[in-house]
């Protein structure tokens, strides 16, 4: 048995959520999916370790969840949209989670994004036909 290689595997700093990752992180994603229901969120909060056991998490994955190691959870292959159901209510945004990959703060990450705004109107004017107020 072998996981098929893909032409997206070589894109630097990029982890595509494909069968291999979806398979290895299935229980993690399922646990986070349950957080769509408030009663499940409360059950988790009352006893995180027991809740992990209920979803059959491996000891390694259970530790990541109990310790709220968001970067570790992502590195374990969890899908970002599912992690969001766990980290966002705990004050960690998706941007903060992305920043953690680069070892920078969420604010630094947002600063870098804001630089995309510089010269945008000029770029659009050069392209032509874009609305600009």
């Amino acid at each position: 048995m072998v996981w098929q290689a893909h032409d997206y595997d070589d894109i630097p700093g990029t982890y595509v959520f494909d069968g291999q990752r979806a398979h290895s992180s299935y229980a993690l994603n399922k646990l986070f999916y349950s957080f769509n229901t408030e009663a499940c969120r409360k059950e988790f909060d009352a006893d995180p370790a027991a809740y992990c056991d209920k979803f059959g998490l491996s000891p390694e994955h259970k530790q990541l969840v109990v310790e709220q190691d968001f970067l570790g959870i992502l590195r374990a292959g969890t899908n970002i949209y599912y992690l969001a159901k766990f980290c966002v209510p705990r004050g960690v945004t998706v941007q903060d989670a992305g920043a953690a990959f680069q070892g920078i703060s969420g604010d630094e990450f947002r600063e870098t994004l804001l630089k995309k705004r510089e010269g945008l109107e000029e770029r659009l004017a050069q392209e032509g036909g874009y609305w600009n107020g």
Partner: peptide, 12 residues
């Protein structure tokens, strides 16, 4: 891109 070391790319 939301995750990975390349998170934060915008290619105008």
């Amino acid at each position: 891109q939301l995750q990975g070391e390349r998170a934060g790319i915008i290619d105008v």
